[in-house]
Every structure is written in structure tokens, then in C-alpha cells.
């Protein structure tokens, strides 16, 4: 008699578990006709854009986001793993290099729609496997109560003790892009020497660009390497910060566009093409320019429609370093960085 109530409970619990699992599996968006989007862009900004797309077209979207600290590369790796049985239809990357890798490995479906036509040649693949839009810049974030936000003052700081300068681990995101650019410009040995020098001069190495922003905004560090979108978050919070573009030896800035591509083998090609055209539209670029991230439109947009800060960034984008042939540098640089940070010595 004593076991009777417990048995009843177990039966109820078992049935409940079976029911919940079944419901989870059957009603999951990706099981229905939802367009599956792997999105490396911050969910804070991208979610509203995708919701807007669903409202306009009636096409439901199931999104898989990445973690903030490790943007994009995780999803690139996932797409490579799923190469033979893709779940994803559209990949919205927040940078270019991972997308180049996917294109090289034949994972992206060419598509040249209305959006493709809108974007300048410097930011798209000629075959239409990927197209760039809404860029952000690699910048120095300077705490204005601790340092002077001028190129000369920044250069002086970078030549001295770096214990009050912050940078993200170069394994991911735009720090990786910066390293790849330098790898291509300087070559392997010079980059490695520069990297060693930064560490010897006690640069403060943290997990992500947002942490760099936090350190500088709170005054723990005076200067940091980060992205324009992170720097604007600090500015909007009223922190005493200013931003200056990171420039290469040749004076070029580093502009990292979002990129979008359709995954080869998608079963929802029509819906995928509609999303690509939507993301590459003027309207979408304007929405991303007006949000807190202030991303710079790469296609033609009337300047008066843009916020003042974005207009200034647009001028820096004009002198951007060409990133489209960085794939070999990325492979070599990433292999070295992985051995440096994860592989042990």
C-alpha cells in the first residue's frame, strides 16, 4: 500500500515527460516551415530586423545565435560540421572571414538578387555566394578623463607600458580580423613579434570587445582596441569615451561588414532569397545604422537619413582595407593563434 501513491506519481511523471518531449520535438519551429537562420550578429539588434522580415513576408524565422564573446566562428564551425546534412538556410555573419571560409569550402549557394545589385563590388563575392552590408569599424576607445583622444596621443601610449591598454583575445571576432590584416601586411614573423611585444609590455588581454569597452569606460584602462558598435554603447551610457579609427601602416581603416549567404542544399530557397534581399535593402541598412550599434550602410543611402556619428564613420569606411582576399591569411593566422591560446606550448 505504501508504494501505491508513488507509483501513480511515477506514471503521471513518465507520461508528462513523454508528452513534453513530444510537444517539444513536434512543435519546434525548425520542424515546421520556418526559415532557419544562423545569426552571429548581436541578438539585441538582429532580432528586431528578423521579426520585421517575418511581419512583412509572413515567413517564420527560427534563429540560432552565438555567444557574445565568441561571435561568428562557432557558427562557422557548426556549419562546417553540418556540411552533409545542413539545418541552416541562411547564415547572417557579423564579419567576413568566416563567410569566406564557407564560400571556399563550397557551402554557400550563389544568389544575385536585388540586394546584390545594390551593394558595391568591394563588399561582395562576384559569384554572389555572399554579400556584405552594414559595416562596423575597428577603433581605439579612449577614456577622455585619462588620455587625450588624438592619433598622436594614442601612438605615444601604444609605444610605452601597455598595462592600462586592453585588447580582446585575437581568437575571435574583429580582433582576429585585425590580426589577419596585419598578417597579410607584415607577414608572419613581424606579427608574431608584435604580438609577443604587446604581451611583454603587459597589455591587458580579455575575452571580448565588450569587456575592453567596459574596462575603458570604467577607467580601469585608458585605451583599448574594440569595435565601433561597442564604443557607441559606452557613449550612449554617458561614459567619458571617444573613438578613433585603427589604421594600418598605409593609413587604411579596418571596416568589417556583416555578410549574408544562402546555405547550399536549403529546402527553402525562395524564402532564403527573400531574406537575403531584405537584409541587403536600404531599409534594413538604415535600421541597423539608426540602432545603438550605428552600423555603416555599404550600399547607397542618402546621407541626411543617417545619424551624425554614422556619417563620420562613413568617411572612415571609404578608406577601408580590402578584406576579400584575406582567406589564406586567416587560415594561417588562426592556426597559429589556436596553438598559441588553446594548444599549449
Amino acid at each position: 500500500m505504501r508504494q501505491r501513491p508513488s507509483k501513480g506519481m511515477a506514471v503521471v511523471a513518465g507520461a508528462g515527460a513523454a508528452f513534453l518531449v513530444t510537444i517539444c520535438c513536434l512543435l519546434w519551429p525548425s520542424r515546421r516551415d520556418a526559415l532557419v537562420v544562423y545569426c552571429a550578429h548581436d541578438s539585441v539588434y538582429s532580432q528586431s530586423v528578423l521579426d520585421d522580415f517575418t511581419k512583412r513576408t509572413g515567413i517564420p524565422v527560427a534563429v540560432k545565435f552565438d555567444t557574445e564573446a565568441t561571435k561568428s566562428l562557432g557558427l562557422v564551425e557548426l556549419l562546417l560540421r553540418e556540411k552533409n546534412h545542413p539545418h541552416c538556410d541562411v547564415f547572417w555573419n557579423n564579419e567576413l572571414l568566416g563567410t569566406l571560409d564557407l564560400a571556399e569550402q563550397g557551402l554557400l549557394e550563389p544568389y544575385r538578387g536585388t540586394g546584390f545589385e545594390r551593394i558595391p563590388a568591394a563588399f561582395k563575392d562576384t559569384d554572389g555566394r555572399w554579400v556584405g552590408f552594414a559595416g562596423r569599424l575597428r577603433v581605439y576607445i579612449v577614456n577622455t578623463t585619462k588620455a587625450t583622444p588624438t592619433p598622436n596621443a594614442v601612438a605615444t601610449t601604444l609605444n610605452g607600458d601597455l598595462s592600462r591598454v586592453a585588447i580582446a583575445k585575437p581568437l575571435f571576432g574583429t580582433t582576429l580580423t585585425q590580426y589577419c590584416v596585419l598578417w597579410q601586411l607584415w607577414g608572419e614573423e613581424k606579427l608574431k613579434a608584435w604580438h609577443r611585444d604587446l604581451r611583454q609590455r603587459r597589455i591587458c588581454e580579455v575575452l571580448g570587445n565588450s569587456t575592453v569597452k567596459n574596462l575603458v569606460a570604467e577607467g580601469t584602462c585608458d585605451l583599448g582596441f574594440t569595435d565601433s558598435d561597442d564604443a557607441f554603447v559606452a557613449k550612449d551610457e554617458g561614459k567619458p569615451v571617444a573613438l578613433l579609427p585603427v589604421r594600418t601602416d598605409t593609413g587604411a581603416t579596418i571596416c568589417i561588414p556583416n555578410t549574408v549567404g544562402i546555405i547550399k542544399g536549403t529546402r527553402r530557397l525562395d524564402a532564403a532569397q527573400k531574406l537575403v534581399d531584405f537584409l541587403l535593402s536600404e531599409e534594413c541598412e538604415l535600421a541597423l545604422a539608426r540602432c545603438q550599434a550605428r552600423q555603416v550602410p555599404l550600399g547607397p543611402v542618402a546621407p541626411d537619413k543617417l545619424p551624425a556619428e554614422v556619417q563620420e564613420l562613413s568617411q572612415w569606411v571609404a578608406s577601408g582595407y580590402p578584406l576579400t582576399d584575406l582567406a589564406p591569411a586567416r587560415r594561417a593566422c588562426l592556426a597559429w593563434l589556436k596553438s598559441e591560446y588553446v594548444g599549449g606550448r
Binding site: 519546434w28 519551429p29 525548425s30 520556418a34 532557419v36 537562420v37 544562423y38 548581436d42 541578438s43 539585441v44 527560427a62 534563429v63 540560432k64 545565435f65 555567444t67 557574445e68 564573446a69 539545418h87 541552416c88 575575452l207 571580448g208 565588450s210 569587456t211 569597452k213 567596459n214 569606460a217 570604467e218 561597442d230 554603447v233 551610457e237
Partner: peptide, 25 residues
């Protein structure tokens, strides 16, 4: 949740963790 969640399902812990990198707001 960050490693195994399927597309279309962001668990609240992952969303919060991602936002936490921007600092306290």
C-alpha cells in the same frame, strides 16, 4: 544551453549571459 540548443530556441540563460558581457545596465 549554449552548446546544444536547437535553432529557434534561445534559452534565457544564454540571452542574459550574452548581454552580461556589455556590463551592468
Amino acid at each position: 544551453a549554449a552548446m546544444l540548443a536547437p535553432p529557434g530556441a534561445t534559452c534565457v540563460s544564454v540571452r542574459l549571459y550574452n548581454l552580461m558581457h556589455y556590463g551592468q545596465t
